[in-house]
């Protein structure tokens, strides 16, 4: 049943599609990744022989995380990815970003899709100030762009609302403050295709309102926003389209209201 629903929505889309500009095309994407088992760590001699023999280490298992997903995303869309835990949502995002190889099929994209994942470049021992610069550089902004947007980033994060926290090391921040600063840095750059993985669950109500407005802005100015979330409410409010994945298979693709309804019916039923 889900299959027919998918087909019908994509075929109605196709008539209108010709005036729209595609930004991401996923064509029968399969993602398989290897998991190193616990047996991997052996003694020094085992490690040595592995290095020289180039045999695969024992205990490697393959996980087929995404199974033949196809869709076309257009400029100006905000697409929510929903599905239960382990259904392959984050893996699909990584494949779109070109950070995870596809086993078969292809992902075509406009510009460089970026994952909102600047946190990895930030250092807890450095001040918020230095981290804004470091994060911006890691995302490929120039020093000048960072200087221009520095104040916006700090204001947006609201870090300085309760005193001069931006000049303190990030390890002194509360988890909410840290998450807010990370989102602010990541959202400071204009992306062609922006992918957000569970970032909006953090922060207080005021910050969540601001970030939704920022996502709206990015959509309007740049292109396409992907949002992975377990909060169906967030997807309904922020996205106009939703893709529902279940154990790596695309169950449904269509307007976010419809897809969220079907997903909720599915989760409450089973």
């Amino acid at each position: 049943m889900a299959d027919t629903l998918t087909r019908s929505t994509t075929s109605t889309d196709r008539t209108a599609a010709d005036t729209r500009v595609p930004t991401v095309i996923a064509d029968e994407v399969h993602v398989v990744y290897k998991v190193h088992g616990a047996t991997r760590k052996g003694g020094a001699t085992a490690a040595l022989s592995r290095i020289f023999s180039r045999r695969p280490a024992p205990g490697i298992r393959e996980v087929h995380a995404v199974k033949g997903v196809s869709f076309t995303a257009y400029k100006g869309e905000a697409i929510g990815l929903i599905g239960s835990n382990g259904s392959g949502k984050s893996t699909l995002l990584k494949a779109i970003a070109g950070l995870q190889p596809v086993a078969s099929g292809a992902v075509y994209s406009h510009g460089q899709p970026s994952l909102l994942g600047v946190n990895a470049a930030l250092m807890n021992d450095l001040t918020g100030e230095r981290n804004v610069v470091l994060g911006g550089l890691a995302m490929g902004m120039t020093r000048r762009q960072i200087r221009e947007r520095y104040q916006d980033i700090v204001d947006f994060s609201g870090i300085n609302e309760k005193g001069d926290f931006i000049s303190l090391p990030m390890r002194t921040y509360s988890s909410g403050m840290g998450a807010r600063l990370r989102f602010s840095i990541a959202a400071a750059k204009d992306h062609d295709v922006l992918m957000i993985d569970e970032a909006l669950a953090t922060g207080d109500a005021a910050f969540q309102r601001r970030s939704q407005a920022r996502i709206e802005e990015l959509r309007a100015s740049a292109g396409t926003v992907f949002l992975v979330s377990h909060g169906i409410g967030t997807v309904r409010e922020t996205c106009d389209r939703a893709i529902w994945l279940e154990s790596g298979v695309l169950r449904m693709d269509g307007p976010s209201g419809e897809v969220c309804d079907a997903y909720e019916a599915f989760t409450s039923g089973g």
């Binding site: 950070l99 970026s114 994952l115 994942g117 600047v118 946190n119 990895a120 470049a121 490929g140």
Partner: peptide, 8 residues
């Protein structure tokens, strides 16, 4: 973490 999150 950095390699898997950002392009550079």
């Amino acid at each position: 973490g950095l390699v898997r999150a950002l392009h550079f």
